[in-house]
Amino acid sequence: KELVLVLYDYQEKSPREVTVKKGDILTLLNSTNKDWWKVEVDDSQGFIPAAYLKKL
């Protein structure tokens, strides 16, 4: 599985998104959309702007 590093805090703005903190390491589930990547946070899944993430 691929991991990503969160570069900036992000507060979810819709139920399909997730809240993350700078420095979090998350599992990347889908990066086919260049603007929004799907990640797994704890036991939930959701989208975060790709610009907030860096592949490890």
Rank of each mutant, 00 (worst) to 15 (best):
D35A: 10
E12N: 11
Y52G: 08
A50F: 02
T19M: 06
V39R: 00
D9S: 08
I25L: 06
V39D: 00
K34A: 12
Y8M: 13
K38V: 14
K13Y: 07
A50H: 04
E2R: 12
Y8V: 09
T19I: 05
S31T: 10
N30M: 07
P15K: 10
K54V: 13
P15C: 11
L53E: 02
V20D: 00
L7D: 00
T19Q: 06
V20Q: 02
V41K: 15
Q11M: 12
T19L: 05
P49E: 04
V20C: 07
L28K: 01
D43W: 06
L26D: 00
V18T: 06
I48D: 03
K38G: 05
S44K: 15
L5W: 05
L28C: 07
N33D: 14
F47P: 01
K54A: 10
E40I: 10
K34M: 09
K55G: 05
K54M: 12
E17N: 09
L28A: 02
P15D: 12
V6Q: 00
K34E: 11
I48F: 02
E40T: 07
E2M: 12
G46S: 08
Y10F: 06
Y52K: 05
K34D: 11
T32P: 04
G23P: 00
V4W: 05
G46I: 15
L28V: 06
L56K: 02
S44L: 14
A51I: 13
D35M: 13
Y10N: 01
Q11D: 12
V41W: 08
W37G: 00
F47A: 03
W37I: 02
V39C: 05
E12L: 15
V41P: 00
L5H: 03
L29G: 01
E12M: 15
Q45R: 10
N30H: 06
V6G: 00
L28P: 00
K55V: 12
E12G: 15
Y52E: 03
L56W: 06
L28T: 01
Y10T: 02
D43F: 09
Q11S: 13
V6M: 02
K1M: 11
K1S: 09
K21P: 01
I48H: 01
L29P: 00
L7Q: 04
D9G: 05
G23K: 01
L5I: 12
K22N: 04
V41S: 12
L3E: 06
F47E: 04
D24E: 10
T27A: 10
L7G: 00
D43V: 07
K55F: 08
A51E: 12
V4F: 03
L5R: 06
E40V: 10
V6E: 00
D9P: 05
Y8F: 13
S44T: 14
V4E: 00
G46P: 08
D35S: 10
E17F: 08
N30G: 06
A51L: 10
F47S: 04
D24S: 09
L7V: 06
D42R: 14
P49W: 05
Y10S: 01
K55H: 08
K1E: 08
T27D: 04
R16S: 13
V18Y: 06
Q11W: 14
P49H: 04
K22W: 04
T27E: 07
K34C: 12
P15Y: 08
I25C: 05
D9C: 05
V39M: 01
S14N: 12
I48P: 02
G23W: 05
K34T: 10
T32F: 10
K13F: 10
Q45K: 09
V18L: 15
A51F: 11
K55T: 07
L28R: 01
S31R: 06
W37E: 00
W37K: 00
D24V: 06
E17K: 09
V41A: 10
T32M: 10
L26P: 00
Q11T: 14
Y10E: 01
P49I: 05
L29T: 04
N33S: 09
L7H: 01
Y8T: 07
V18W: 11
L26E: 01
I25G: 00
Q45E: 14
Q11R: 09
I25A: 02
E17A: 09
P15F: 07
E17Y: 07
V6R: 01
L26T: 01
E40D: 06
N30S: 13
E2V: 13
L53V: 12
T32Q: 11
P49L: 06
W37V: 02
D42T: 08
K34V: 09
V4K: 00
R16L: 13
T27R: 13
W36V: 04
E40Q: 14
K1I: 11
I48L: 13
Y10Q: 01
A51P: 08
L29Y: 03
Y8P: 00
D42Q: 13
Y8N: 10
R16C: 15
V6I: 04
G23C: 07
D43Q: 13
A50W: 02
L7N: 01
